[in-house]
Design a protein around this nucleic acid. Structure first.
Length: 601
RNA sequence: CGGAGCGUAGCUCAGCCUGGUAGAGCACUUGCUUUGGGAGCAAGACGUCGCAGGUUCGAAUCCUGUCGCUCCGACCA
């Protein structure tokens, strides 16, 4: 390609709405342009890089035995209702109506479509296992698009779906994809590592995310350098000991705490109750039912764990009004010792109970009379604890959680912090930010059962396919490559995904000038060898050409100037390496040798 | 959806407080000079100041509404 024939609108300054370095460079290097928030056009250079990432993904998916298909972006509402996700994934679904008022969803993923296909086309165990994938445009009704391609309303995703006859087979399919992902990200020049992950509304039993470490990422990963444990903070656990038991009195004791509504205030004079001897009581509305969550005072609730462990579809903190109706006190004085107004005489209690129940049920909240209490495992066996008395301005001490509180179930509900001992090897955990570029799930039979994707087994029985699904955010991966590879001058592409591998830079471009004639000759030779070359034929000053080639980040620049030519030489400069002058006759072979170092930046 | 901020030339921004003929740098066009690290000089083109309404003799500027964008939070396959 000749530079003057394509469109590479480089910018000296980044548009004001670009926040992170990779977003700025995507715009400055002329790879993308924004049409609207979270919606971008890929310009020629950006599309070339994107296609290279896609090609790597296709090669590795094919190598792993997956078959490429292309499924509709426009999906009928009915199949989403059948899987149950019309409701559970409702907040991210783009919904459209056609002229006859029929509802459609713009595909954020394709479990329903592929499972419907399998239901129709796969009948026998002889046809399994199978793995189908596609690379296509996906839509998500992001409430807040951010960081360019990182979180967009519209993006390119590779999604794959495996179908097996047995659980063990599904596990093998999962491992194949896991290995393919490691190859894919390595070939893209990315340092991506797998971490244990929550399965979210996709569901399933087993899941890893592939993470690219970056301060601008939107995920926190807990990891152990000693044993290799790594997990999304939403899933991570640690090996902290349970709260120590002590000698205490026979019953909880109420004491006045006027104006004290925080853990911190109660830990100070005159009360001096350390946060780790307090029980924090949180009220949530989970699937329209009130629940209490008990966490140690110095811990933080992990809402993802709450949903995962309780099986709730949606949960939100209760409002202050709801809390007063439920427990009779405002936040700051809440506890789970007396949750049904035991402190009142029976007749008063019953009338309060009925009145409040009616109001809550009017607002769609049910199960008031039997509030479930979920407690974090770290509180198991804890006594000599202090918690709210469900009476404004009062707390209870001498609380033994097992004796005084009716806990419905114990779960790991807390968020781990850096420095806690690893659950596997006791070394201190670290936490860092990362970009999620891929996700693999073992789904099991959740979708195949709901959408009737069954097969006839060798023994004649009809069984649901055991499924897995595997996603890679292609456009996000592209941006992650830039986020990880840049310096003050611009992008540093790995050879594998660079829009062009070599930038030929003649410093005189008149058709009959020596630099231009030599550039055209080298261009022809490199192109014939299968190298992606761009020839900067613009009549610009050398400084402009050098700055642009570094901003765009071509891995190898071959400059041809009058001075070096007079000595029979040209100048070859890797994007992040030293300049070398080579004889004209050796120029092509030197470049070819550099291009062979496929995995290097 | 809550909180904050911003919408002026293709890009970065000034002007707004204190109303009075629309500005700068970069980019663009033409000419001359220059030619190994984002050139110099000269000339030129580019704007319904996001949109709508209001106040006023007069609004980029003040008021109201609205749309869009960004940040923080909530949310997130």
């Amino acid at each position: 390609m000749y530079w003057s024939k394509t469109l590479i609108p480089t910018l000296r300054e980044a548009p004001a709405d670009a926040e992170i370095v990779s977003h700025k460079l995507l715009l400055r290097a002329g790879l993308i342009r924004k049409l609207a928030g979270g919606v971008y056009t890929f310009l020629p250079l950006g599309l070339r890089a994107l296609r290279k990432v896609e090609q790597i993904i296709r090669e590795e998916m094919d190598r792993a035995g997956a078959n490429e298909v292309l499924m509709p972006a426009l999906q009928p509402k009915e199949i989403w209702e059948q899987s149950g996700r019309a409701e559970t994934a409702s907040n991210v679904l783009f919904k459209v109506k056609d002229s006859s008022n029929r509802e459609w969803f713009l595909s954020p993923t394709a479990e329903e479509v592929i499972t419907t296909l399998a239901a129709n086309e796969i009948n026998s165990y002889r046809q399994l296992p199978k793995n189908f994938y596609q690379v296509s445009l996906k839509f998500r009704d992001e409430i807040r698009p951010r960081f360019g391609l990182m979180r967009a309303k519209e993006f390119i995703m590779k999604d794959a779906y495996s179908f097996d006859t047995t659980d063990a087979g599904a596990m093998a399919s999962y491992q194949k994809m896991y290995a393919a992902y490691q190859r894919i990200f390595a070939r893209c020049g990315l340092q991506a590592f797998p971490v244990e992950a929550d399965t979210g509304v996709i569901g399933g039993s087993h899941s890893h995310e592939f993470m690219v470490p970056a301060e601008t990422g939107e995920n926190d990963v807990a990891y152990c350098e000693a044993c290799g444990y790594a997990a999304n903070i939403e899933k991570a656990t640690s090996g902290l000991p349970k709260t120590a038991a002590r000698e205490i009195g026979a019953a909880p004791e109420k004491f006045a705490t006027p104006g004290v509504v925080t853990i911190e205030a109660l830990s100070k004079d005159p009360y001096k109750v350390p946060a780790n001897r307090q029980i924090k009581t949180l009220v949530y509305i989970a699937d329209s039912q009130p629940i209490l969550i008990l966490i140690r005072g110095d811990d933080q609730l992990n809402e993802t764990k709450l949903l995962a462990k309780t099986g709730a579809v949606v949960a939100r903190p209760a409002t202050v009004d709801e809390i007063v109706l439920l427990l009779g006190a405002k936040p700051g004085s809440l506890g789970a010792v007396y949750i049904n107004f035991e402190r009142f005489p029976d007749d008063v209690r019953n009338s309060l109970f009925e009145a409040r129940k009616n109001i809550l049920e009017r607002d769609g909240i049910s199960g008031f009379e039997k509030i479930k209490v979920y407690a974090d495992e770290r509180l198991q066996g804890a006594n000599d604890m202090t918690t709210g008395a469900n009476e404004d301005g009062f707390h209870l001490k001498n609380v033994s959680i097992e004796r005084d509180i009716k806990v419905t179930a114990w779960f790991d509900l807390r968020t781990v912090s850096a420095g806690e001992p690893c659950a596997k090897c006791a070394q201190p955990l670290k936490i860092r930010r990362a970009i999620e570029v891929g996700h693999v799930f073992k789904l099991g039979t959740k979708y195949s059962e709901k959408l009737n994707a069954t097969f006839l087994a060798a023994d004649g029985s009809r069984q649901p396919c055991v499924m897995g699904c595997y996603g890679i955010g292609v456009t996000r991966t592209l941006q992650a490559v830039i986020e990880q590879g840049n310096d003050k001058d611009g992008i540093i592409w790995p050879l594998s995904v660079a829009p062009y591998q070599v930038c030929l830079t003649p410093l005189a471009v008149a058709p009959e000038s020596e630099p231009m004639k030599l550039a055209e000759k080298i261009y022809a030779e490199l192109t014939a060898q299968g190298v992606d070359v761009i020839l900067d034929d613009r009549d610009e000053r050398p400084g402009v050409k050098f700055k642009d080639s570094e901003l765009v980040g071509f891995p190898i620049r071959l400059a041809i100037g009058e001075k070096a030519l007079a000595k029979g030489e040209v100048e070859i400069k890797p994007r992040s390496g030293p300049v070398q002058f080579v004889k004209i006759a050796d120029a092509v072979s030197t470049v070819l040798a550099l291009v062979k170092t496929v995995y290097s930046r």
